[in-house]
């Protein structure tokens, strides 16, 4: 196995999970998320020679996945809200049922994409606000505002749903 193949396999091993989850919350569908991840890695393989710094691999892969997701919209219009709600809460294999967890998932799904995506980058991918700013090509203070609003909207949604988080004020 050559070095390029080893690096590719390592990238797949390391990032398939966060990328799948990121893709899942972008499109709201497990099958599409799986295709997005596979397409992302195929494109990554073709351009792997351009990756000179493995520390930048995560940002690089997220960029590819976001572009791939945008291409999907070009090919076929897809509304996130069209996804049946049950498909969003049925993915946690073996997970104990939790009403508040399901409420949170619905809340995430209802967030506008401009608020949801910075949150995904921060919580799922561990990006800093500066990294999110670069990735989304928006000012850092806009990122901060969107992160704040995302969490406030989730809080309001949870509180409206029978105060499941215990009255966050």
């Amino acid at each position: 196995m050559n070095d390029k193949q080893k690096l590719f396999n390592s990238l797949v091993e390391a990032y398939q999970k966060p990328l799948y989850r990121y893709g899942y919350w972008l499109c709201g569908d497990g099958s599409i998320a799986e295709d997005l991840v596979q397409e992302t890695f195929l494109r990554a393989w073709r351009a792997l020679d351009s990756l000179h710094n493995t520390a930048a691999a995560k940002s690089w892969l997220v960029t590819i996945l976001r572009r791939e997701n945008a291409r999907r919209f070009q090919r076929k219009a897809f509304e996130y809200s069209d996804v049946p709600m049950e498909s969003l809460v049925d993915e946690g294999a073996g997970e104990v049922y939790s009403a508040e967890l399901e409420t949170m998932r619905i809340g995430i799904e209802r967030l506008d994409e401009k608020y949801r995506e910075p949150l995904l980058m921060q919580v799922l991918m561990g990006f800093t606000q500066e990294e999110i700013s670069e990735q989304m090509e928006i000012p850092a203070n806009t990122v901060a505002t969107r992160l704040r609003r995302a969490r406030l909207q989730l809080r309001d949604f949870l509180m409206a749903d029978e105060d499941v988080v215990g009255g966050v004020k």
Partner: peptide, 10 residues
């Protein structure tokens, strides 16, 4: 809760 909700099964 947000972290748990985002970590859907792969």
């Amino acid at each position: 809760l947000l972290e748990r909700a985002l970590n859907v099964g792969v």
